[in-house]
Write a protein that binds this DNA or RNA. Structure first.
Lengths: 348, 348
DNA sequence: CTGAAAGCGCTTACAG
DNA sequence: CTGAAAGCGCTTACAG
């Protein structure tokens, strides 16, 4: 232990005694409640300063029936895109007086734990859930407990949420590739039936198919590859694609992290990007720019901000409004897509 | 609001009444305390299940004088290296029964806020502080309040901490570059006198100097550049270095993120890496491998695990033991360092 | 304007 | 083995 706890911290009653007032009065100056003469207020304040008094949030919360802390449930909270959303959440929660408690979910079990853990609003005043579609039973539990909740990166008919149009994002990627002359486009994404219920990957694939379809093209079945989220897994899928008799000329990855896996595998296979293979990612995380990855930008940080703002509003009992429109998705053109006819490297 | 709060959640007294026992007894079965007949225990348990009873952590904590939550104070908690450490912390705290509250520090003000906010152990049972050297007054405040604290990525003579030998890390980078024939090695790091007090950057520079010094070489003053942490800033410094009359043949960056800035600037300047310029980073964050960056690996995630374990031990009142030795630093050779004599690109 | 008291929902000696 | 009661440190009607 650093040292002896020392004399116990002063409580409200110590302040009251020393100031010669009742605890109620101290509480009132603490809370800037009206009905305290300027005189006593000053005196009490002085004693608080002198004693270095700090009210106990725990006691306060018990009395008030709240916890003053908000939870964030996120799968793989250390993945770059989740981190960006977290940053957005912190932008607004950080200065709100609420504490932020993290519930990391990396296994289906943890998912269950997390949700059970904050149930009954005994622990949290509200919760933001990132990228995890909720089951009906879970939504009912939240409602039953009156626990305000918002969803980020997930659509839901009865809960406030902020989400993007993934299908459109996939279409943007497809159209860009099409414009560059690609006709054999592959897709690398998450498992369609993953234990967390992520579904954005499939929607992005749908968008890609729509874009190609509008040009009379299809995404060949052998060109659609799925694996658990991650860079290595994406690299593995890429190797499979490259060994096909008719390998794709371009790969659209459901996330930048997966796109990096593609680039990695291509490099190891001795392929130049974009000379031999083009790749488009999704997210536009910070490193995409550094690497020069062409990708579909989604407003990650802003989604966190909106979600947090929505949560704060729900806390005040303001309707279940949805997040409003997020900034549009856009394709950010960098250095990983080459024109297919000329078969020559573009840019550096 | 999702819906009406519904009937209020059952309290311990409701369970007691329905089970025909006193609240003390319910509390005892709740806490697996001895001295409850198997009979009553079963009966009480049944009622708890029936009512869906969940004890209030707030009330429990007030009664017990603890909060059951641990804090993590981190600068830029969304930077890759901090995220890795957080992940390590979560590895061990996640299954400990403690909640994790985040205090993000991106400005000197926030630093002050964070430390004031959890003072007096009213809010937290313990705290892990990442990369922020503590001032003496802050350490005294922690001690006075009896708030267990551990430091990660910071050395301290009286607080449990886990840190690496940055000087040695710098030396590893220098020796590797030397072995490849480089004699004009530049350094890009954080501001020596930054508002947060980071100091690892300077120690890494010292190590670099030692290595070159041992070979009778020096790091030219004009080859030492510092800026606030970040990719763009590192890119800016790189451009300055490249415009020198005698530009360096290699750059050692104090972190991988900064190394990416170097690579970015080099690419924009039309320089090939490692053909025209070599670069060595520090950290070995996940993406370093994807990009093929040669770097000094430090055990980021493990540092979080050790720090958290230390904190847990401090919570149990077990001495202030230091983190023990972390896995050794090692230089991970990839594709960004070329041999200087032959002046030819190495690898792909 | 201000104090005494009850209440928030637990835990834990203290007596049976 | 078990219950009644005090206590954790606040807040907030309720009476002055």
């Amino acid at each position: 232990m650093p040292s002896e706890p020392g004399p116990r911290a002063p409580r409200i009653r110590d302040v009251a005694a020393r100031a010669g007032v009742g605890v109620g009065t101290v509480s009132r100056v603490l809370n800037d409640s009206p009905g305290v003469s300027e005189d006593t207020r000053a005196r009490v304040q002085a004693v608080m300063d002198e004693l270095g008094y700090r009210p106990s949030p725990t006691a306060r919360n018990l009395s008030l029936g709240r916890t003053q802390t908000l939870g964030v449930v996120a799968p793989f909270f250390t993945s770059p895109s989740v981190v960006e959303r977290l940053r957005g959440i912190d932008d607004v929660i950080g200065r709100s007086g609420y504490d932020l408690t993290l519930f990391n979910v990396e296994t289906p079990d943890q998912r269950h734990d997390a949700i059970a853990r904050f149930a009954r609003r005994h622990r949290l005043d509200g919760v933001a859930i990132i990228s995890l579609p909720l089951r009906d039973a879970e939504v009912r539990a939240l409602n039953r407990d009156g626990l305000p909740a918002v969803l980020i990166d997930v659509h839901h008919r009865s809960l406030p949420h902020v989400a993007i149009d993934d299908v459109r994002g996939g279409r943007l990627a497809g159209e860009h590739l099409l414009a560059a002359g690609h006709e054999r486009v592959a897709f690398i994404g998450d498992l369609a039936d993953n234990p967390f219920g992520f579904s954005s990957s499939e929607r992005r694939l749908r968008g890609l198919r729509e874009a190609l379809g509008a040009a009379g093209l299809i995404v060949a079945d052998e060109h659609v590859k799925r694996a658990p989220y991650g860079r290595e897994a994406a690299g593995r899928l890429t190797r499979e694609l490259l060994q096909l008799r008719r390998p794709p000329t371009a790969i659209f990855a459901a996330s930048d992290v997966q796109a990096f896996g593609v680039m990695d595998a291509a490099a190891r296979a001795g392929l130049a990007i974009p000379g031999d293979l083009s790749v488009v990612g999704f997210d536009d995380i910070e490193l995409a720019a550094a690497i020069g990855l062409t990708t579909v930008r989604q407003p990650l940080r802003e989604s966190g901000r909106r979600g947090a703002a929505l949560l704060l509003r729900a806390l005040e009992g303001v309707g279940t409004g949805h997040g409003g429109e997020l900034p549009e998705l856009e394709l950010v053109e960098r250095r990983t897509v080459g024109r297919i006819e000329r078969a020559q490297a573009v840019g550096a």
